[in-house]
Protein backbone atom coordinates (compact mmCIF):
# COMPACT_ATOMS: atom_id res chain seq x y z
CA UNK A 1 0.00 0.00 0.00
CA UNK A 2 1.54 3.30 -1.08
CA UNK A 3 0.31 6.06 1.20
CA UNK A 4 2.46 8.91 -0.04
CA UNK A 5 -0.46 10.76 -1.59
CA UNK A 6 -2.80 9.72 1.23
CA UNK A 7 -0.44 11.30 3.74
CA UNK A 8 -0.56 14.58 1.86
CA UNK A 9 -4.33 14.84 2.56
CA UNK A 10 -5.53 16.99 5.45
CA UNK A 11 -8.82 17.04 7.30
CA UNK A 12 -10.70 20.21 6.36
CA UNK A 13 -9.11 20.35 2.89
CA UNK A 14 -11.69 21.00 0.17
CA UNK A 15 -12.20 21.28 -3.57
CA UNK A 16 -14.93 23.06 -5.50
CA UNK A 17 -16.31 23.30 -8.98
CA UNK A 18 -18.90 25.49 -10.67
CA UNK A 19 -21.29 24.18 -13.27
CA UNK A 20 -24.50 25.24 -14.96
CA UNK A 21 -26.53 22.52 -16.67
CA UNK A 22 -28.48 23.42 -19.79
CA UNK A 23 -31.79 22.03 -21.00
CA UNK A 24 -29.74 20.32 -23.73
CA UNK A 25 -27.62 18.56 -21.07
CA UNK A 26 -30.81 17.25 -19.45
CA UNK A 27 -32.17 16.07 -22.82
CA UNK A 28 -28.90 14.25 -23.46
CA UNK A 29 -29.06 12.61 -20.05
CA UNK A 30 -32.64 11.44 -20.68
CA UNK A 31 -31.54 10.01 -24.02
CA UNK A 32 -28.52 8.32 -22.42
CA UNK A 33 -30.71 6.47 -19.93
CA UNK A 34 -33.53 5.91 -22.41
CA UNK A 35 -36.03 7.98 -20.50
CA UNK A 36 -38.88 9.25 -22.64
CA UNK A 37 -40.01 12.02 -20.28
CA UNK A 38 -39.59 15.76 -19.89
CA UNK A 39 -37.48 16.21 -16.79
CA UNK A 40 -38.24 19.22 -14.61
CA UNK A 41 -34.93 20.64 -13.35
CA UNK A 42 -31.58 18.86 -13.19
CA UNK A 43 -31.60 15.06 -12.64
CA UNK A 44 -30.01 14.01 -9.34
CA UNK A 45 -27.35 11.79 -10.98
CA UNK A 46 -25.92 14.88 -12.69
CA UNK A 47 -25.63 16.57 -9.27
CA UNK A 48 -24.02 13.39 -7.93
CA UNK A 49 -21.70 13.41 -10.96
CA UNK A 50 -20.27 16.75 -9.79
CA UNK A 51 -19.14 15.09 -6.56
CA UNK A 52 -17.66 12.09 -8.34
CA UNK A 53 -15.89 14.43 -10.75
CA UNK A 54 -14.32 16.33 -7.85
CA UNK A 55 -13.33 13.12 -6.04
CA UNK A 56 -11.86 11.43 -9.10
CA UNK A 57 -10.15 14.42 -10.68
CA UNK A 58 -9.26 16.70 -7.80
CA UNK A 59 -9.61 15.56 -4.17
CA UNK A 60 -8.23 12.97 -3.56
CA UNK A 61 -7.78 12.72 -7.39
CA UNK A 62 -6.83 9.99 -9.85
CA UNK A 63 -6.61 6.56 -8.25
CA UNK A 64 -9.62 7.22 -6.03
CA UNK A 65 -11.76 4.13 -5.54
CA UNK A 66 -15.32 5.33 -4.94
CA UNK A 67 -16.95 3.11 -2.31
CA UNK A 68 -20.01 4.99 -1.02
CA UNK A 69 -22.06 8.12 -1.50
CA UNK A 70 -25.04 9.22 0.59
CA UNK A 71 -27.12 12.20 -0.50
CA UNK A 72 -30.13 14.14 0.72
CA UNK A 73 -31.82 16.24 -1.96
CA UNK A 74 -33.35 19.41 -0.55
CA UNK A 75 -34.66 20.99 -3.70
CA UNK A 76 -34.33 20.36 -7.42
CA UNK A 77 -31.72 22.45 -9.23
CA UNK A 78 -33.02 24.36 -12.27
CA UNK A 79 -31.44 24.28 -15.69
CA UNK A 80 -29.51 27.52 -16.17
CA UNK A 81 -28.92 27.81 -12.43
CA UNK A 82 -25.28 28.33 -11.46
CA UNK A 83 -24.31 25.45 -9.19
CA UNK A 84 -21.32 25.04 -6.92
CA UNK A 85 -20.32 21.59 -5.72
CA UNK A 86 -17.74 21.05 -3.01
CA UNK A 87 -16.13 18.12 -1.25
CA UNK A 88 -14.32 18.48 2.09
CA UNK A 89 -12.18 15.88 3.83
CA UNK A 90 -13.90 15.07 7.12
CA UNK A 91 -12.02 12.01 8.32
CA UNK A 92 -8.82 10.16 7.40
CA UNK A 93 -8.28 6.51 8.40
CA UNK A 94 -4.69 5.75 7.49
CA UNK A 95 -4.74 2.07 8.53
CA UNK A 96 -7.39 1.35 5.88
CA UNK A 97 -6.49 4.17 3.45
CA UNK A 98 -10.06 5.44 3.76
CA UNK A 99 -11.15 9.04 3.30
CA UNK A 100 -14.55 10.40 4.35
CA UNK A 101 -15.67 13.62 2.71
CA UNK A 102 -18.72 15.82 3.12
CA UNK A 103 -20.31 16.71 -0.20
CA UNK A 104 -22.45 19.79 -0.77
CA UNK A 105 -24.10 21.35 -3.80
CA UNK A 106 -25.58 24.83 -3.63
CA UNK A 107 -27.42 26.89 -6.22
CA UNK A 108 -28.34 30.53 -6.77
CA UNK A 109 -28.01 32.72 -3.68
CA UNK A 110 -26.35 29.77 -1.98
CA UNK A 111 -29.56 27.75 -1.68
CA UNK A 112 -28.94 24.16 -0.62
CA UNK A 113 -29.59 21.62 -3.38
CA UNK A 114 -27.93 18.51 -1.98
CA UNK A 115 -25.75 17.49 0.94
CA UNK A 116 -24.20 14.20 1.80
CA UNK A 117 -21.13 12.15 2.49
CA UNK A 118 -18.68 10.16 0.40
CA UNK A 119 -16.31 7.35 1.33
CA UNK A 120 -13.33 6.58 -0.88
CA UNK A 121 -10.33 4.27 -0.77
CA UNK A 122 -7.09 6.02 -1.68
CA UNK A 123 -3.98 3.89 -1.66
CA UNK A 124 -1.88 4.95 -4.63
Amino acid sequence: MNLERFDALKEGESAKLNRTFTAEDVREWCELCQLDQDWPGVPEPLIAGLFSCLLGEDLPGHGTNYLKQAMTFHTAADTGEPLQASVTVSRLRRDKALVNLTTVCTGRDGRLICEGEALVLFQH
Binding site: C30, Q34, L35, Q37, W39, P45, L46, A48, A70, F73
Partner: peptide
Protein backbone atom coordinates in the same frame (compact mmCIF):
# COMPACT_ATOMS: atom_id res chain seq x y z
CA UNK B 1 -23.13 7.84 -11.33
CA UNK B 2 -23.92 6.45 -14.77
CA UNK B 3 -25.19 3.35 -12.96
CA UNK B 4 -27.15 5.65 -10.63
CA UNK B 5 -28.58 7.31 -13.78
CA UNK B 6 -30.00 3.98 -14.94
CA UNK B 7 -31.54 3.48 -11.48
CA UNK B 8 -33.01 6.99 -11.45
CA UNK B 9 -34.47 6.50 -14.90
CA UNK B 10 -36.24 3.29 -13.89
CA UNK B 11 -37.59 4.99 -10.75
CA UNK B 12 -38.96 7.83 -12.89
CA UNK B 13 -40.58 5.38 -15.30
CA UNK B 14 -42.07 3.26 -12.52
CA UNK B 15 -43.25 6.14 -10.30
CA UNK B 16 -43.75 9.14 -12.63
CA UNK B 17 -43.80 12.49 -10.88
CA UNK B 18 -42.22 11.15 -7.68
CA UNK B 19 -39.54 13.10 -5.81
CA UNK B 20 -36.23 11.57 -4.76
CA UNK B 21 -35.58 12.69 -1.17
CA UNK B 22 -32.46 10.77 -0.40
CA UNK B 23 -30.21 8.19 -1.97
CA UNK B 24 -27.45 5.99 -0.55
CA UNK B 25 -25.11 4.25 -2.97
Amino acid sequence: MLLFSVVRSLLAQTWPGSTLNRQNL
